[in-house]
Amino acid sequence: MTEEQNPAAIRAEAIESLLIEKGLITAAAIDEVVERYNERIGPLNGARVVARAWRDATFKRALLSDATAAVAPFEFEGGQTEKLVVVENTPKVHNVVVCTLCSCYPWAMLGLPPRWYKDPAYRSRIVREPRRVLAEFGMQLEPDVEVRVWDSSAEVRYLVLPQAPDDATRVSEEELVARVTRDAMIGVERVA
């Protein structure tokens, strides 16, 4: 189906054009918001925080005790992160984040969520059968690893601190940043 034939695309255009004609919004204001989220707000923000935590034990302690304050000096733009909580993966604990009621997600840290995060399959299953879902993502967890699921049901936003790779203290922070994936910070992937 081409975009022109898509009913949602047409209805969105109808609403936008009517609101512009009423002088309530401008197309330029929408362009600006779209550009900001398309180009400046993304998972690189979260990756910088994770890489810092792997290299700096003092920062990591601060991050785990009060993430909102610990990330404030980064001055990330973007909404949906009024209170941030960072949860740490260890050899015995694996964390994974969801929003079963809508699609809450730490925008300022990770950008806008991927489609699968917002789809019914992930939202319905990850709270009920997280081991099976994580296995489908390629993560086989040992039986003695506790799985902690965080269902973002209020305004607290969660970010997973993945386990550091073995060489985390030997390579540069920039290289670590490049290795941290968005999916690892949601909790459905390991960092290689």
Binding site: V34, G111, W116, R123
Partner: peptide, 25 residues
């Protein structure tokens, strides 16, 4: 919308290419 624990939705489908927006609309 209250999807937690509902069954029957099948495998989580991931895209190989994940644009922020899939269409202009």
């Amino acid at each position: 919308h209250d999807l937690g624990g509902k069954q029957g939705f099948g495998t989580v489908v991931r895209e190989t290419d994940e644009p922020v927006f899939h269409a202009r609309w």
